Amino acid sequence: MTRYRTYGDAGQAFPIYITVVAGLLFLAFAYFAVGQAAVNRNGAQTAADAAALAAAQETRDELAGRWVEDILDPQKWQDIFAGEVLGLEPPCWRAYELAAQNDASVRGCDQDGLRLTVTVQANKSAGDSVIPATSTRRAHASATAVIESLCTFDPPGEDAEEDVLPRLNCEDGDDWELDPEDLTDLPGPEDLFDVHLAND
Results as ranks from 00 to 15, higher is better:
111 Q>R: 14
49 D>E: 08
65 G>H: 05
21 V>C: 07
78 Q>P: 04
26 F>W: 12
14 F>V: 11
137 R>C: 13
80 I>F: 02
26 F>C: 08
157 G>E: 10
2 T>D: 08
111 Q>A: 09
191 D>V: 11
79 D>C: 03
74 P>W: 08
144 T>F: 09
43 G>Q: 12
127 G>W: 06
94 R>F: 05
165 L>C: 06
71 I>R: 12
189 P>Y: 04
77 W>M: 12
47 A>D: 03
107 R>Y: 08
58 E>S: 12
107 R>K: 14
51 A>C: 02
137 R>T: 12
176 W>E: 03
67 W>D: 01
118 V>N: 14
68 V>C: 00
49 D>H: 10
72 L>D: 05
156 P>C: 10
133 A>Q: 11
131 I>S: 00
194 D>P: 07
181 E>I: 05
70 D>A: 15
118 V>P: 11
128 D>E: 15
118 V>H: 04
162 E>Q: 13
170 C>P: 04
93 W>F: 09
34 V>N: 01
159 D>K: 10
38 A>D: 07
73 D>L: 12
40 N>R: 14
47 A>C: 13
105 S>H: 08
186 L>P: 00
4 Y>A: 11
189 P>W: 02
19 T>L: 13
113 G>M: 11
58 E>P: 01
193 F>C: 02
87 G>M: 04
128 D>I: 06
78 Q>M: 09
126 A>L: 05
131 I>R: 02
74 P>S: 00
166 P>K: 10
76 K>I: 06
12 Q>G: 06
185 D>F: 15
68 V>A: 11
110 D>L: 10
195 V>N: 10
6 T>D: 08
106 V>N: 00
10 A>D: 01
10 A>M: 12
77 W>Q: 12
161 E>G: 13
195 V>I: 06
64 A>M: 03
147 I>A: 01
132 P>H: 07
144 T>Y: 02
146 V>R: 13
20 V>A: 12
120 V>I: 07
141 A>T: 04
112 D>H: 05
73 D>R: 09
45 Q>M: 15
180 P>D: 08
33 A>K: 02
198 A>S: 15
26 F>Q: 03
88 L>I: 12
179 D>P: 10
122 A>H: 07
158 E>M: 15
152 T>L: 08
172 D>P: 04
198 A>F: 06
8 G>I: 15
108 G>Q: 14
15 P>T: 10
124 K>A: 14
15 P>K: 07
151 C>E: 02
65 G>W: 05
142 S>T: 10
64 A>D: 02
16 I>Q: 09
142 S>P: 00
122 A>G: 08
192 L>W: 05
57 Q>G: 00
193 F>A: 00
183 L>K: 01
162 E>D: 14
81 F>H: 01
67 W>L: 13
137 R>K: 08
166 P>R: 02
19 T>F: 10
34 V>G: 04
77 W>Y: 06
68 V>G: 01
65 G>Q: 10
27 L>Y: 04
91 P>W: 04
198 A>M: 04
117 T>F: 04
166 P>C: 11
